[in-house]
Simulated scan of single mutants.
Amino acid sequence: MSKQMQSMALTVPSGGSIESYMQMVNGIPMLTAAEEKQLAERLVQDEDLQAAQKLIMSHLRFVVHIAKGYAGYGLPQADLIQEGNIGLMKAVKRFDPTVGVRLVSFAVHWIKAEIHEFVLKNWRIVKVATTKAQRKLFFNLRKSKKRLGWFNREEIKTVAETLGVSEREVVEMESRMSNSDMAFDLSNDDDDNATTSFAPVQYLEDHSSDVADTVEQQQWDNHANQKLAAALRTLDERSQDIINSRWLLDSKQTLQDLADKYSVSAERVRQLEKNAMKKLQAAMS
């Protein structure tokens, strides 16, 4: 990866400033699908580094979201985010806008791959996980621990059945994770042109939480809220108040409450509410 692209990612501060960093990246506007595609095309066709920067910056919040899932390994949150940012930059460089998927769906594998490498290297345990199967067991075993101390026999059996491995493999991995004899290093080829049999898509994925689905749901919720706000503005002031009071406020009012407020019958309020709902549905569709 070029030094120019590496310099685009925000430097993640350590210590108390991490909260300020999270607020800053959450304040960066998200891209629409059309904007994302246009920027990606500029990067692929014209090698436009400003387009790459916008793609990276708009997805830094997703790196933070993923990195939070690895807080239980005792490593600095800032370092986990920084490694995830490297994975994001690699994903942006390889992103193909013609495939028809959003960048976050493509990038999640690269982000996790970099964080996995960082976690494994910095645990510094001899042969803790040298194969794909052992790496998968390593990360899943950490998630399965509900308390401090060693697993008892019943817990070993439960974990083995849940992860689809033998009890012996669970005991062996727990032993590796509990010892710290000497450091180890896994190969990490930073040459973008090098070929490897371990593509990022083959790394462990956490199927209990799909970041892409979460992001898409957030984007849909934001879109729906914006459309609802715009639709409400098309109503007259009284109709807006009725809809807000009957549906949107935490402390909802009854038809009679609103009837007393506007000196009309409860049936008239119900009619106004019904008409307002029809107008809202028409505006939002």
Rank of each mutant, 00 (worst) to 15 (best):
W123G: 10
F95L: 01
V92H: 04
N122A: 04
L148V: 12
N140I: 10
R147E: 11
N140P: 03
V108E: 15
K157F: 02
F95P: 11
G149P: 03
W123M: 15
L120W: 00
V170K: 07
R124I: 04
A160P: 02
E174H: 13
R102G: 11
I81D: 03
N140V: 07
N140W: 14
P76K: 07
K146V: 12
Q77W: 12
F139K: 00
G164D: 02
S144H: 10
L80P: 06
A129W: 11
K127R: 14
K132I: 15
S187P: 14
M182T: 15
D79C: 12
A91L: 04
N85H: 06
A91S: 12
K127L: 08
F151S: 05
P76F: 05
H116I: 10
F118T: 10
N85G: 02
W110V: 13
V165G: 00
S105V: 05
L186Y: 15
V92R: 02
V101M: 09
L120D: 06
H109S: 15
S178V: 05
L141V: 01
V128L: 13
R102V: 03
L103E: 04
T98V: 10
E167V: 06
N152M: 04
V119W: 09
D185C: 11
H116D: 08
S144D: 12
K145R: 14
A91G: 06
T158Y: 01
A133R: 13
K90V: 09
R124E: 06
L137S: 08
L163D: 04
L141A: 01
V171W: 11
E155Q: 10
T162W: 10
F118P: 02
R102C: 08
H116E: 05
G84I: 02
R176T: 05
R124Y: 04
I156A: 06
D185P: 08
E169W: 11
S180M: 09
V101T: 15
W123A: 01
F106P: 10
D79L: 11
M182G: 14
N179M: 12
K127E: 05
K112W: 07
K121P: 01
E167C: 12
N85P: 07
G164W: 09
L103G: 01
F151I: 03
W123P: 00
A160Q: 02
D96N: 03
G100A: 09
V104D: 04
I156D: 02
E167G: 05
M173L: 10
S187A: 15
P97H: 00
L120Q: 10
K121S: 14
D79N: 13
K146N: 13
V126Y: 02
E167P: 03
G84N: 02
V159N: 04
L80W: 06
M177E: 07
V159E: 03
N152I: 03
A113R: 08
A91R: 04
T130C: 05
S180Y: 08
G149C: 08
N140C: 09
V119D: 07
I156H: 10
